[in-house]
Design a protein around this nucleic acid. Structure first.
Length: 206
DNA sequence: CCAACGATTAACT
DNA sequence: GTTAATCGTTGGT
């Protein structure tokens, strides 16, 4: 992918609050037999395990969240609301269940495939691109994610992660996370590219 | 075993 | 702004 270069797993073996803002502008790609879709990440949230009442891992390890407790650079995928999938990229080291929810992105490869997968998003506007990957559920749908992707490795297999070739200082806005209730909903652990139209329209739930 | 609900979305009014 | 859709996971009986 033009303008992006590979990076090692060390990128994810850092504190989640260091990783989260540096994910913005990076390239995330998933391939399967139906095609390849790649996005430029525009919105993420940090989830900090036992320190974070809003995190799945807050109450310890379960069968569902086990991937978060594993090695960095893997995909934690979960199913929620009976119909949506969402993905986190696992950070830090084994045993520290921190990760970044990928909330939104700009589809820059495989838009045709993404449009087919996101048929319901088609009628947004006759000319402008539809909301292909705006919000975690939409993003997962555009990428073709299923629960089989839980535990997938970003470094090998059908996923790929690249960083921008040019280190440009993106304008970043920080604010409360979406859909997180209680005190954890006040933590400013959401990061997005300022003014980017692909960022989810949802706002704080507090 | 069972009831409640969720890191949401899209279609309503 | 409000709400139905929809089911795996969780935590309490």
């Amino acid at each position: 992918m033009d303008g992006f270069i590979p990076v090692s797993r060390v990128f994810f073996e850092r504190n989640v609050f260091d990783v989260a803002p540096t994910l913005l502008g990076c390239y995330l790609e998933r391939s399967d037999s139906s095609g390849t879709v790649g996005i430029r990440i525009t919105e993420v949230e940090a989830y900090a395990g036992e320190r974070d009442p809003g995190a799945h891992a807050y109450r310890g390890q379960t069968a569902r969240n086990a991937t978060m407790f594993g090695a960095a650079g893997h995909v934690y995928c979960y199913f929620t609301y009976g119909l949506h999938h969402a993905i986190n990229l696992v950070t830090n080291r084994v045993g520290v269940p921190y990760g970044c929810l990928i909330r939104a992105g700009e589809v820059i490869r495989g838009e045709g495939v993404a449009r087919v997968r996101r048929e319901s998003a088609r009628r947004v506007h006759p000319v402008l691109p539809p909301d292909l990957a705006r919000g975690p559920g939409s993003l997962a749908q555009a990428l073709g994610v299923t629960l089989l992707d839980n535990g997938a490795d970003l470094f090998g297999g059908n996923w790929r992660f690249l960083v921008p070739e040019q280190q440009t200082a993106l304008p970043v806005t920080i604010g409360p996370r979406v859909g997180v209730r209680g005190v954890a909903g006040t933590f400013p652990w959401r990061y997005w590219i300022s003014g980017d139209p692909t960022v989810s329209r949802y706002r704080s739930s507090i």
